[in-house]
Amino acid sequence: MHSSATPYLKALGTRLLAGIPVLLLVTFAATALSDLMAGSAAQAILGEFATPEQIAQLNAAYGYDLPAWQRYLRWLGNALQGDLGHTLYSQQPVAQVLFDRALVTFEIAFAAMIFSLAVAVPLALAMAARAGGRLDSALRFAASAMLAVPTFVSVVVLSLLFSIFLRWLPATGWVPFFDDPLGNLRHLILPVMCLSVHQVAYFFRVARNEFLATLQQDFIASARAKGFSTRYILWHHVLRPSLPQVLTVMGLSMTYLLGGSFIVESFFAIPGIGWTVLSAVQDHDLAMVQAILVLTVLIFVLVFALVDLGYALIDPRVEVK
């Protein structure tokens, strides 16, 4: 057994550091965004009836009259101290607002990922054993059909079905977990299902093909020659060598789940990141938009650092550096 977790923590650190260039690029681009605005940024934000005093006030607070790099250094300095600025109208700390909203989005995204994996991976394992059969062909078709359903279609169709026709689930709204766990669950089901339509199909496809590829390997032939049953071979010899690929796809699907949360949250009126970014865009609340970009990139970098570590845990040939 590996005696200590220290090399893993170190490796995690190195990979997080490797994400810094991406982070800097995104945050700088986000700062420079306001230069794309027609005319003066402050004027564009406040509208044409803004008084010169209001514009001066806004420029003083957010520095829209400064060159992008100066604004960026200022933002970076504050961000390193944990200050991501204040929201444009309510003047709340961005970091605080974002933290509350992010928890909601993470709960939904995480639940959708777990649910999709729990459905797709066992199904893929079962189908890999009978690849080319009728059920396998039917499920492959179902998967490619489900992949063609955008989230904004699945929210409409599923809420039509479950909350309007069947009246099983609430159509909109959100209850925090700590206020009412059961109510939270009821409000969670529909958003999670909407995000999972795509994810289940995606995981199924990737996992099935990967299992099938593993089944072609020589060590499976030697396992078969030892007289092991197909079921035994699938669980003991196919699953683990196929996991790195599944892990990669899990990492990639984080981006999809966050993107999908915009649709889901706006449709079901759930106060998460997606809902927040939409109102921020409407209000030209650039500090908030920038903070959300930072958060998204951070999640991405963290997830892929974890995926990398996952490879090392699954595959003994991968060295942890």
Binding site: D218, F219, A221, S222, A225, K226, H237, P241, P316, R317
Partner: peptide
């Protein structure tokens, strides 16, 4: 009752076990 040894030992062993 029958043991088989295949050609390519690197590929015939499960690298993950």
């Amino acid at each position: 009752r029958v043991g088989v040894v295949f050609q390519n030992p690197t590929a015939s062993l499960n690298a993950f076990e």
